[in-house]
Every structure is written in structure tokens, then in C-alpha cells.
Amino acid sequence: MLSRRLIPCLDVRGGRVVKGVRFRDHVDMGDIVELALRYRDQGADELVFYDIGASPEGRSVDYAWVERVARLIDIPFCVAGGIRDVETARRMLHAGADKISVNSPALERPALVSELADAFGVQCVVVGIDSIREADGQWRVRTNTGDPDKTRALAVRTLDWIAEAQRLGAGEIVLNCMDSDGVRRGYDIAQLRQARALCKVPLVASGGAGEMQHFAAVFEQADVDGALAASVFHSGTIPIPELKRFLRERQIEVRDV
């Protein structure tokens, strides 16, 4: 049976891992490779590296650290941030990334998703979505969330974009619920359940993890394939081996390490 995945997310800026609260006020969390290896040893199922400076600054991630990580770790990892064309994606995959995730550039030019799927197969193509609940009760997408001054609100409804992204060739959706991000009050179950109903490909929940119970809730109630978190893992508040024991006791399938 397929295991539910626990995915530490490492926000990368200037070659270091950082973490902010509600996408602001970033603090240094440590060296990329050091953290990657630590998570591998703890039993993380996958890693995501978000170069959060890349999209707002209009540049792509650099490849050197991708290769450094790829040489050392033996679990899959995904790279996100500033990938806006097939050539950049190809270099990233050749450097050793297993998947590439596109967010703002895919919203700006949705054909990018199809181009990537055609070139590498849907299994490499993750569409990341930053979503926020607006005054009318609808969830809508945001772009360039790595830099609050450059963040833009689009008229696109999150659920419509999830359907469209799959049609274009997304092999996985990572839904980052911004209202919950960094505040540790739990994943946005209501939104994720609606996303799940539309999502035929793997769905990863992001934003809001604060306690072990939050992980159990999102797997049980929103049936997501993976749960992504940053601060609770980086700070050591939730050690991954303990979290896996907790989930297994609740009959949630996780990988033994």
C-alpha cells in the first residue's frame, strides 16, 4: 500500500535555508546540505527546496547546490522557484532533482505546464499553488509570494486552477494554504477537501502544521497523499520518527525507516 509522505520544505534564499511567518520576516535555519542529510536520516520521505527569492527577483535557482544535494541524499527531492522554461527545468533535472515545481511562472503562462509534461513526463511536473481566502469566501491564487512587495493577487479561483493545471499536465499539486502558513493552527482541511475532490493526481497539503494531530487530521479528513511542513521540522518541535510512530498508531500508512 502506498505510504503517506512527510515532506520537510526547505525555503532557500541566498544558498541558505530560511523560514518566515506568513511569508515574511525570514530567519536563517542553516546550511542546505546539512539539513537535507539530517532529514534523510530522520526518515523524511521526500524534500522540497523552494528558492523563494527566485521568482520575485526574476532569476532561476542556481544548479550547484542541487547537484551537491543530489550526490549526497538517497531520497527524492523537488526543486521549485524561478523555473520558467523547459531548458531551465532540464538543467535542474540533470543536476539531480527528481521533480520540478512551478508556481508563479505557470500562472503567468499556463502553457509552461504542458511544455514541461511533454518534455519530461507528467511525473516530474509539480504545480505549486499559493492560495488565500478572500472576502467573498472564495479561495484565489497569489503569485510571487516569496517577496511580499511583489506578491500579486490574480482573479483566478484556486479550485479552477487545480482543474486546469491537471488538464495541462501537472503530475502532482502542492496546495499551500496561505491563511494557515506558519501559524501552526493546523492544515486548512476545508480547502484541502475541496481540492482533493477535484484532484486525480497526488495532492500535497502545505501550511499550518503545528502539532502531530494536524498531520493525522489532514490525512484522515482531506485524504492528501503528502503533508509538507517547515518550521515544526526545522525547530525540532515535531521529530519525524515520533510523528511516524504517532501516525502508525492511528492506522495511517507511513514508511518505516
Binding site: M1, L2, S3, R4, R5, D45, E46, V122, Q123, G171, E172, C199, K200, V201, P202, L203, D223, D225, G226, R255
Partner: peptide
């Protein structure tokens, strides 16, 4: 239902 394709992740 409940079986997503691509099959992505750790399996026994």
C-alpha cells in the same frame, strides 16, 4: 477512487 495516477511515493 483513492488510487491516484501517477503512482507517486513509497510503496511496499
Amino acid at each position: 477512487p483513492g488510487i491516484r495516477v501517477p503512482h507517486m511515493g513509497w510503496n511496499a
